[in-house]
Design a protein around this nucleic acid. Sequence first.
DNA 1: TACATACAC
DNA 2: GATGGTGTATGTA
Length: 537
Amino acid sequence: MDSTKETSNTYKEDLLLRMGLNDNKAGMEGLDKEKINKIIMGATKGSRFYGNELKKEKQVNQRIENMMQQKARITSQQLREAQLQVDRFAMELEHCRDLSNTIVHVDMDAFYAAVEMRDNPELKDKPIAVGSMSMLSTSNYHARRFGVRAAMPGFIAKRLCPHLIIVPLNFDKYRVVSKQVGICLAPTSICSWVSCRIRSQLQMPRQDWPEERRRYFIKTGNSKTTSELTTYLTSIEYELSASPLLFEDSPPDLQPPGNPSQVNCKEQNKLQIPQKSVVFGTSAEEVVKEIRFRIEQKTTLTASAGIAPNTMLAKVCSDKNKPNGQYQILPSRQAVMEFIKDLPIRKISGIGKVTEKMLKALGIITCAELYQQRALLSLLFSETSWHYFLHISLGLGSTHLARDGERKSMSVERTFNEINKAEDQYSLCQELCSEIAQDLQKEGLKGRTVTVKLKNVNFEVKTRASTVSSVVSTEEEIFAIAKELLRTEIDVFGYLVFLVKQTKNTNKGASLASYRLGTKLCQPLGVQERRLIKISV
DNA sequence: TACATACAC
DNA sequence: GATGGTGTATGTA
């Protein structure tokens, strides 16, 4: 076990990186990180959670050490050869660079928090977060100034910001708003979306649209007018959805919405709506402004957006002018490379904490540095990984939006407080099996692999899986398998948590590739004790 | 196929 | 007092 000294000295920096404030998020620039980290560490140090993080951190450090040893064994001859090979590949990629698509990534600002603030005016101007004392899903920008952010436990957030108001999650509400946002995009283009994040591919020019089609009337506070206008807006949307949305790059007809002085105030006699109106242009930028305008009119919430030649860049761009802003990378190689140059790799979707740290050990922080080290990376990482890195450093990414494929797994997982008796664990397992069975039935799916996931009080996680020859889907079938998996673990280790998973189904039609079912139970007292009892027996 | 890791949201 | 839940991909054995 680690001595206290080792813990406090050797890994201090590492742990701050792992446990301290992650400010890689909009609205968290220029915070007093040191002060915030002090509070976070004060709240977490000595906890079981902290102990497990320490352990995981050591594993990452070991990985890095292995990598560095491997690096030390690389000869300059090997490096030269790698350089040639990588550059040949890079040239091919360059040759295939496609700047002809326009990808838009729309991202709602502090989504859950914004919904809660909208629905409860008392929360306006106050620091709020959505979630529980155990875990927060998101926070508003006010709270972010205190270092309060998503994935932080509420009790720690409270220490950072004692006045923080924590609102419980209302998934049903977010689902409704999420759908409304989807409708705002539907007429625009081909679009695919996950939760409140939306990617949209603008496809066809709309330069021949009459201005009337691109005109919107601003909602006002007046309730009667608002209702009229809403009706009108709805009818416009209906019209839009009946035709493809078109655009091409051309100067905007008007300034951005949201700035009253720039709003067009023409009379609309024909429509008998004497209100302010706004007309959007036909460029990509204008279309995106229009999308964001529609979202705001429909939901009273703001969204940010990125416009770029591929999905990787569009995603990064959507964060650049958050909240309530947008950013475009023009479709030229130069614009792309200029944008990429000093961009920290951590900003790219898919580069997380661990990858960031490993690359940092190689002196890589920015995309330009990622490119410089391309030969070395090809020798240290798997083909999949270095290809991925190379794409990033060239500013390349997917230029089309994949349709949602069929699901590959399904799971249910829950963390519990205290379960002392094995029989209680079995019955909880059965409950989860029942839930999964229902979920499977809802989608008409079946699976072949059942996985049980266990987590003990020290946050150690293990998974145990079993694949059967024919598909299963009922509570009884699944529980029979899960129970066996669980039994082995309880008997041997006295573990407290479990999970079940299932994969691959050959049925056609209503079928599922796989599903997963999980449970986690926590038992504060048990592990050591139980293990001892087992041994003594 | 089994298991662990990393990542996103 | 207290550190989530769901899903995907990948590496390795």
